[in-house]
C-alpha cells in the first residue's frame, strides 16, 4: 500500500497543477491558431440545447434539435453579439390510469446563450423550424463580409 505524507500537500497536487498549466498553454495556442473559435469555444457546454454553428460567405447558421416543440414556445433574441434561446419543452398531457414503461425524453425549461464570432445584421435575423430542428440564419454585417476586389486593366 502506498503511503502519502499529508504534511506535504504541495507535492501531492503538483502533477495536477502541472496538467492544468499545460491545458492552459494548449488553450492559448488554440486561440492563437484559430482566432475565430475563441468566443464560440468559451460558450457554456453541457447545457440544453446543444448547438451546431456554421457559416458561409454571407450568413452564420445556428441549429438546435428541439423535437416536439412548437415555434411559439421558443424565444430567440439577439443583443449585441449575444444570441439567446429560451423556452420550455412541455410533455404532452396524459390521461388517467396511464403508467410509464420507459421515460427517456427530457422536459423542462432552458436558456442558452452564445457569443457570436462575427458581427451580424441584427434586423435581418430569421429563424425556421422544420421537423423539430430550429435553424437561425444570421446575416453577417456588411463590413465583415468578404469583398471581391476587381483588378483593373490598364
Amino acid at each position: 500500500m502506498a503511503l502519502l505524507r499529508w504534511s506535504a500537500p504541495g507535492d501531492l497536487f503538483r502533477p495536477f497543477e502541472e496538467m492544468e498549466r499545460e491545458m492552459e498553454r494548449l488553450r492559448a495556442e488554440m486561440d492563437r491558431l484559430l482566432p475565430g473559435f475563441r468566443s464560440l469555444r468559451t460558450a457554456r457546454v453541457g447545457v440544453f440545447p446543444p448547438l451546431n454553428v456554421s457559416e458561409d460567405k454571407d450568413n452564420l447558421y445556428v441549429r438546435a434539435e428541439l423535437p416536439g416543440m412548437h415555434p411559439d414556445q421558443i424565444e430567440i433574441s439577439v443583443e449585441g453579439d449575444t444570441l439567446t434561446l429560451r423556452g420550455e419543452r412541455k410533455p404532452a398531457p396524459l390521461g388517467d390510469n396511464v403508467s410509464y414503461h420507459r421515460r427517456e425524453r427530457e422536459f423542462g425549461r432552458f436558456r442558452r446563450s452564445l457569443t457570436l464570432p462575427t458581427r451580424i445584421d441584427v434586423d435581418a435575423v430569421e429563424a425556421t423550424f422544420n421537423n423539430g430542428v430550429l435553424t437561425i440564419v444570421l446575416p453577417k454585417a456588411q463590413e465583415v463580409r468578404p469583398k471581391q476586389i476587381p483588378v483593373k486593366a490598364q
Binding site: G36, F37, L40, R41, A43, V45, P50, L51, N52, V53, S54, E55, D56, L60, Y61, R63, E65, P117, V133, T135
Partner: peptide, 13 residues
Amino acid sequence: LEGEGETVLLREY
C-alpha cells in the same frame, strides 16, 4: 441533412 457546403464553427451534437 442540412447546411452542406457551410463551414462548421461549433459542433455540439
